[in-house]
């Protein structure tokens, strides 16, 4: 027992425990989110959703995951083999690493870095590489379409996303995520930065390729976009990464605008998860309400509306900070 405590106390032990915890969290979270998405979609569409496996279909996703694992992994004949096989792994790794710096509560954080925000945003940018790899290697016109769209979209939306989160960072004066939460002791930043919150949610939806910005996998146009040629658990990994990405952007929104783990009565991590899932519900709500935007409109929207507004917001914040 003493040994265990000593091992956990070291940095390496902390990393190992964190890694195991993160993998467990990622899988449980994805299972839950997929179930949640199905239920949210179903109830918005006046139907019950999965009901058969488990209580209200609670373990339906596990059944689906088992099915995916049992499926044959088909590698189409003309693919660029190594890149094709690497893409599902590349899409998943940065997602895992982002969890390193997310503070689930005051103490529950694997590594509290002073550049936490930058780390997450840098890793988020890697996802696009995986999508490009998948689309390009698939040797399928629809898949190439999807991946090219994805690159353009991510480049366009990374900029307003960064500028938007700059405003709260300016108010705190630190890139450390725990500092940002700590600065929201009196009020949440959503009160002082409502525009930034709206902009952030919009950009985050686009970053995670969710409807109405799900152009890389636009079903009615591109069949399945970049993962058209993937089957079985390879497809499953893309799927898993999408939902984990959603968790990460929602977690960032919670940290920046909703006061992180702060909240009465309940322990910090419960509050944190509650807020995260509330944000995710919002993103799901978008998906099941809106039609998809067109590709050029999407880019226009980013450059003509989001980026100017984000800059305006940043300037305004800076001005107010200076005057105060």
């Amino acid at each position: 027992m003493d040994n265990l405590v000593r091992i956990l106390g070291t940095d390496l032990g902390r990393m190992l425990a964190g890694l195991i915890g993160v993998i467990a969290l990622v899988s449980v979270n994805a299972l839950f989110l997929i179930w949640m998405e199905r239920k949210v979609a179903a109830h918005m569409q006046l139907r019950p959703g999965p009901m058969e496996v488990g209580w209200h279909g609670a373990i339906q996703t596990i059944a689906d995951a088992l099915k995916l694992m049992g499926k044959e992994l088909i590698t189409p004949a003309e693919v660029d083999r190594s890149v094709y096989l690497l893409a599902p792994i590349v899409v998943f790794l940065p997602v895992l690493l982002s969890f390193l710096v997310i503070p689930f509560s005051q103490t529950l954080v694997i590594r509290d870095m002073n550049v936490g925000v930058l780390l997450i945003l840098a890793f988020a940018a890697l996802t696009v590489l995986a999508i490009l790899m998948a689309g390009w290697a698939s040797n399928n016109k629809y898949a190439v379409f999807g991946s090219i769209r994805s690159v353009a979209q991510n480049v366009a939306y990374e900029i307003p996303l960064l500028i938007t989160v700059m405003s709260p960072i300016l108010m705190v004066g630190s890139y450390r995520l725990t500092d940002i939460v700590a600065a929201q002791e009196k009020f949440w930043f959503i009160v002082s930065q409502p525009l930034a919150f709206i902009l952030y949610i919009t950009c985050a939806t686009a970053e995670t390729n969710r409807a109405p910005f799900d152009l890389p996998e636009a079903e009615s146009e591109l069949v399945a976009g970049f993962h058209t040629e993937y089957s079985g658990m390879r497809f499953g990994l893309f799927f898993l990464a999408e939902y984990t990405n959603m968790f990460i952007v929602a977690a960032l929104a919670t940290i920046f605008f909703l006061g992180g783990w702060r909240g009465p009565v309940l322990p910090g991590w419960v509050w944190f998860l509650l807020k995260v899932y509330a944000i995710i519900f919002l993103i799901m709500w978008f998906r099941w309400t809106f039609p998809r935007v067109r590709f050029d409109q999407l880019i226009t929207f980013a450059w003509k509306i989001l980026i100017p507004l984000a800059f305006a917001n940043l300037l305004l914040t800076a001005l107010v900070m200076k005057l105060m």
Binding site: H43, M44, L46, R47, P48
Partner: peptide, 11 residues
């Protein structure tokens, strides 16, 4: 959509 979200199921 949120109005229908809380409505009873029809299926």
């Amino acid at each position: 959509t949120i109005k229908y979200f809380v409505k009873p199921i029809v299926t």
